[in-house]
Write a protein that binds this DNA or RNA. Structure first.
Length: 590
DNA sequence: CTGGGGATGGGGCCC
DNA sequence: CGGGCCCCATCCCCA
């Protein structure tokens, strides 16, 4: 017995889910566009994808091989079996591009379709594009370190170590063929732009034109190499869709809303539709082995050889989606900073704000003065980072408002949400009007909120950590005093920076998960963790870090240096933080 | 099973 | 903007 339209129906459902971002567990980055999809579907479509999604939840495609508009078609094809070539471009050109992309992505059926189509239309054979070049068959045209198409896997985190070679990865060859440098994701502004000026066509990346992918240069000039093993993105985090407002309407809609337009029955006017008739036999098997062994590390690190996968499992999930709400409230950190974050904000507002900065139109990137980080705290938060956009700017009162995009669970039609008070409005105008009613004072965290940690805690915490940094600053040399917490600073800029920590607003959203940050640098750093950029490699064991400091810290593992000594018991520690936690043991009542 | 220590990741913030 | 350092959280190992 067979249900007639079972497959079709299933695919339809999946495509609809993709449109909503429902259960999407992978993000594909193409230039500055993000597409969400389902690993299973991708893996079933192509061996290449299969190897990519095996370990990664965030995949960067080679922008020389595919651009956002093409990838959108590709994705639509994968989910529908139909090829919708947009009518607005030379169809031949389009099919050529599609063929390139299909070949690159090893979507053989699609490639065949394109070739057929090109042949039919008398199109000349793709220049230098054999039918199955494969992802790595293409050489770089120049020395640019482009945002890479690299399958980022654990391997990329840890350069081959003796043990590494013991368990080959399915896509080993592929990965190995790419230098580490190529694994940099964040195409620096230059690279990104130089590399694909033309392919940007589809993106009306208004405010962020000229900005690197994701609006950031994450590539971080780096030392030897960097792996791009991406951290996991929460499967149901719906927030990643629209990295940049400008591209939301185009690219994103492509991956989301538009996909519904390609559904059977949907209006496909203006598009030429080709359907895949052949039973989609994606070349099965391949050297793909199901569970790629985790990266190996030696000795001590061996214990953590599961680092990457683990990160994937725990790191982001708990970290980026649950933690923000819980975090920071507990211990009084020395300036009460985290308290302002976790407790104050998390509890105050709807937790599912999204990150599409409604103010982005104005270009001011500070335009996106979003508030608390609770934004991505639940998987339902929608939208994409507003971010990318601008370059530092003034703070506008209306900045902390942004628009729910893509997924509006709680606010219904009121997509424009005022962060401080959580009210939703149907239009930006109304929201703006509303925002005016908030005074600046309201933006400050009220101490009675109970989350503001006082100085006593600071000192206490400080005492624990030995002779480190001063928590009380001599005001003589620090004339600029914070009106909220009385801390003082040497220069007004630092004071201003500090004062922001008291604000509810968090102007810098992560384009991937939507989390908000008070400082751009922090957000950039955070983005690196999404993208798995770990520029700092340990020469001893190959372990990689996102920060230089971590590497320095780590090096003590090898050197055996234990500079931190407990004054109470004489215990020595390689890291100060461990000494602190140790001291806590001494001082804790039990 | 539990607690302590080693090690690492991420965020906040000052310089 | 990046470096550096602080903090918290967490994992893993081991006694």
């Amino acid at each position: 017995m067979e249900l007639p339209n079972h497959a079709k129906h299933l695919l339809l459902q999946l495509n609809q889910q993709r449109a909503k971002g429902f259960l999407c567990d992978v993000i594909i980055v193409v230039e500055n566009a993000l597409f969400r999809a389902h690993k299973n579907i991708l893996a079933a479509s192509s061996i290449y994808f299969k190897s990519l999604v095996l370990h990664d939840n965030l995949i960067n495609l080679d922008t020389e091989m595919v651009n956002p508009s093409v990838f959108r078609q590709v994705l639509d094809f994968i989910y529908t079996g139909k090829l919708l070539s947009s009518s607005d471009q030379s169809s031949e050109q389009n099919f050529s591009a599609l063929l390139t992309a299909a070949s690159y992505l090893q979507l053989h059926d699609l490639a065949a379709l394109c070739r057929k189509k090109l042949k039919r239309s008398g199109g000349k054979p793709l220049p230098g594009k054999p039918s199955t070049p494969g992802p790595h068959s293409r050489l770089r045209l120049n020395n640019q370190r482009l945002s890479s198409s690299t399958p980022a896997g654990p391997k990329n985190h840890y350069p081959p170590t003796p043990s590494d070679t013991d368990h080959p990865q399915p896509d080993e060859g592929l990965r190995d063929k790419l230098s580490d440098d190529e694994m940099f994701v964040g195409s620096s502004g230059k690279n990104g732009n130089a590399g694909n000026g033309s392919s940007n066509g589809n993106l009306s990346s208004g405010g962020s034109a000229g900005e690197p992918d994701l609006g950031l240069d994450l590539s971080k000039k780096s030392p030897p190499s960097a792996g791009i093993a991406t951290d996991a993105l929460s499967p149901n985090s719906n927030s990643q869709e629209s990295p940049q407002s400008a591209s939301v309407s185009t690219t994103n809609s492509a991956s989301l809303d538009d996909s519904s337009a390609t559904l059977p029955g949907a209006d496909t006017c203006g598009s030429e539709t080709m359907e895949l008739n052949t039973s989609s036999k994606t070349s099965e098997e391949a050297p793909n082995q199901p569970d790629g062994p985790p990266p190996q590390k030696k000795s001590r690190q061996g214990a953590r050889k599961n680092e990457w996968p683990k990160r994937e499992a725990s790191g982001l999930k708990s970290e980026d989606h649950e933690k923000p709400l819980v975090n920071g409230v507990i211990m009084g950190p020395k300036d009460g900073r985290s308290s302002g974050v976790g407790g104050g904000s998390g509890s105050s507002f709807a937790s599912d704000q999204s990150f599409q900065c409604k103010d982005e139109e104005e270009g001011g990137e500070n335009g996106q003065d979003h508030s608390d980080e609770s934004g991505q705290s639940d998987g339902e938060s929608a939208g994409g980072g507003g971010g990318g956009g601008g370059k530092g700017g003034g703070t506008q009162s209306a900045n902390y408002v942004y628009r729910q995009e893509g997924f509006e669970p709680a606010f219904g039609d009121n997509l424009y949400v005022c962060i401080p008070c959580g009210k939703g409005f149907p239009s930006s105008e109304q929201l703006n009007a509303h925002v005016e009613t908030h005074t600046e004072d309201e933006l400050y965290i009220k101490e009675e909120g109970g989350t503001f940690v006082k100085e006593e805690d600071e000192e206490e915490a400080e005492d624990l950590s030995a002779p480190v940094g001063p928590s009380n600053f001599g005001s003589e040399t620090r004339p600029f005093k914070c009106t909220v917490c009385s801390k003082s600073y040497k220069d007004p800029a630092t004071l201003r920076q500090h004062e922001k920590s008291h604000w509810l607003t968090r102007p810098f959203p992560c384009n991937i998960c939507g989390k908000m940050f008070t400082q751009r640098g922090t957000m950039t750093r955070h983005m690196r963790s999404h993208l798995g950029l770990k520029p700092f490699a340990c020469e001893e064991c190959g372990m990689r870090f996102t920060r230089q400091y971590r590497l320095t810290e780590h090096m003590r593992v090898h050197s055996g240096e234990k500079p931190y000594e407990c004054q109470l018991c004489g215990g020595k520690f390689t890291q100060q933080r461990n000494l602190i936690s140790h001291l806590r043991m001494h001082t804790s009542p039990s």
